[in-house]
Design a protein around this nucleic acid. Structure first.
Lengths: 184, 184
DNA sequence: GCGCAATACCTCCGTAACGATGTATTGTCC
DNA sequence: GGACAATACATCGTTACGGAGGTATTGCGC
């Protein structure tokens, strides 16, 4: 079973772990989560629900539906909950490196009910952020913002560095908290 | 002619605007630009080159190739340069809202040889960043980091805010510079 | 009583993207 | 001399995604 992309699938599993929902409501929640960056089309959501249902990760129960068409209320199965935890505990490399996917993963990481495993995931992100890398190179040497003349490219580096620094300090604080075992 | 996704295509056009390159070298440059976030598969690049060639945006010239297979040196046509400028001047909404796509766009925005048009693009990003939005809501009200208990979700908001602030200040500085017309 | 938005689901079709694999050559390490 | 990485391109099969459209109901404004 591959678990390469499917941020959408992760979001579905994550939201359904909180409470059973029907597709339309699920769509609204996913739109709230990631819609300002990248909207979810219904023609992407419904096939994804079917995939997960066919894989036995969620169950469907038809109910009379207030307002219009009958609702298909979706509930995570035991396998679905297990799969969610597997995806959270052992994310693909792209889930670590791509900010959009990383944010989605973080949004549901609390469902991984084990501080040590949560910390291990944060460590992977920490390792990624510490790897020296840039968007622009001179030969093999990554260029710093100050060395780039183009103001737009300089902007990319300036913004990326600010993000990186904010995230590094958050990661260190949170890892400390996870290790000392408090809930703050 | 639609210009919805295709960050890959934009990167190809952008790099070739600087200099003619063969596919393999193009791949290395694209990998340097966005590879740390999301690697480019060869099986994605070569079809993209063919698409652009078929659309008349680039021309191919076969040369003996140092080392191995013959190189196909790719050059932007006049239409290719025009198309690049069109995509830069009038980006799709997703190019503005998705950070990965936005960074790619910024990396080549200098090829849009008109400070007023460049400023107009930055204005769109500015407007997007100013729209009140969150990843998490209580009803319709966007939640601030302080209101979220889950430390991971709080992290998402903390990091996003830091990014947003860094980018807003960069945008304002750069817009000022574009309007007063200096090269700094 | 007509249009329209919201609710709630669905399918078709085209394209984009990925992983796997293939082909062929040169240079390097051991 | 044999394995292996790098150079350089390509195809194949599958999935993922998005736009456009379809169906059906309730309730609101005018």
């Amino acid at each position: 079973m591959r678990h390469n992309a499917g941020m959408l699938e992760l979001a579905i599993l994550g939201f359904l772990h909180d409470a059973p929902l029907h597709g339309y409501e699920l769509r609204k929640r996913i739109t709230a989560l990631t819609g300002h960056v990248k909207p979810v089309a219904e023609s992407t959501l419904y096939p994804a629900i079917k995939r997960l249902e066919k894989a036995g990760l969620l169950a469907r129960e038809t109910r009379p539906g207030a307002g219009a068409a009958p609702r298909h209320v979706l509930t995570l199965t035991a396998e679905g909950r297990a799969e969610l935890r597997r995806r959270l505990a052992d994310p693909a490399e792209g889930d670590i490196t791509d900010e959009n996917r990383w944010f989605t993963l973080l949004s549901f990481l609390r469902h991984l009910d084990d501080p040590a495993r949560q910390a291990a995931v944060l460590e992977r992100r920490l390792a990624f952020l510490r790897r020296p890398s840039s968007f622009f190179y001179e030969g093999d040497r990554p260029l710093r913002a100050e060395e780039v003349e183009d103001p737009f490219r300089r902007g990319v580096l300036t913004i990326a560095r600010a993000t990186s620094q904010a995230e590094l300090s958050w990661l260190r604080r949170t890892l400390d908290a996870l290790r000392t075992g408090d809930g703050t």
